[in-house]
């Protein structure tokens, strides 16, 4: 049986990314292994699912990844999505922590979404299914 164990986001600075994804978003660090050079195999998980899918905070060292990220951000397109219990409450909490949103909570029928800037070069969608 094949399973998804990690999903990646490309980050411009792993230490900064770890701070943002833990201190602001609320994930917890799962794995941190030096990979040579400055790179680390650095993952975080949701405290609600500590043995669930890990989010790999992967260095965006390849020049093409920066180009792609810039193009996505300009059009407001999120790199990935996380589920939250209440987008409105999360938006208020994160805004209070200084997190910038490119899309305020928006009711789209079956789902409410918002889009934030992860400060590492990506936009991230938060979603609450109704």
């Amino acid at each position: 049986m094949i399973k998804i164990n990690v999903a990646s986001v490309w980050v411009d600075d792993q230490a900064k990314a770890l701070d943002f994804y833990t201190d602001k978003l609320g994930f917890v660090k799962k794995t941190d292994i030096p990979m040579g050079g400055d790179a680390r195999w650095l993952t975080v998980v949701s405290p609600a699912v500590p043995d669930g899918v890990e989010l790999l905070l992967e260095p965006d060292g390849h020049p093409a990844s920066r180009q792609l990220k810039d193009a996505l951000v300009a059009d407001g397109i999120p790199f990935t999505q996380f589920a939250v219990d209440d987008v409105y409450a999360e938006h208020e909490r994160l805004t209070g922590l200084g997190v910038a949103f490119t899309q305020e909570p928006t009711d789209l029928g079956p789902v409410v979404t918002a889009v934030l800037d992860d400060t590492c070069g990506n936009l991230i969608q938060l979603a609450t299914m109704k």
């Binding site: 059009d75 407001g76 397109i77 899309q103 305020e104 928006t106 889009v115």
Partner: peptide, 24 residues
């Protein structure tokens, strides 16, 4: 309804609220 939207938000609203399937 909300002034100042990204292309992504506009596309999402058209798809989800209006059932429009136009490409980005």
């Amino acid at each position: 309804e909300r002034d100042g939207q990204t292309l992504f938000e506009i596309c999402g609203r058209l798809t989800m609220k209006h059932g429009l399937t136009s490409s980005r």
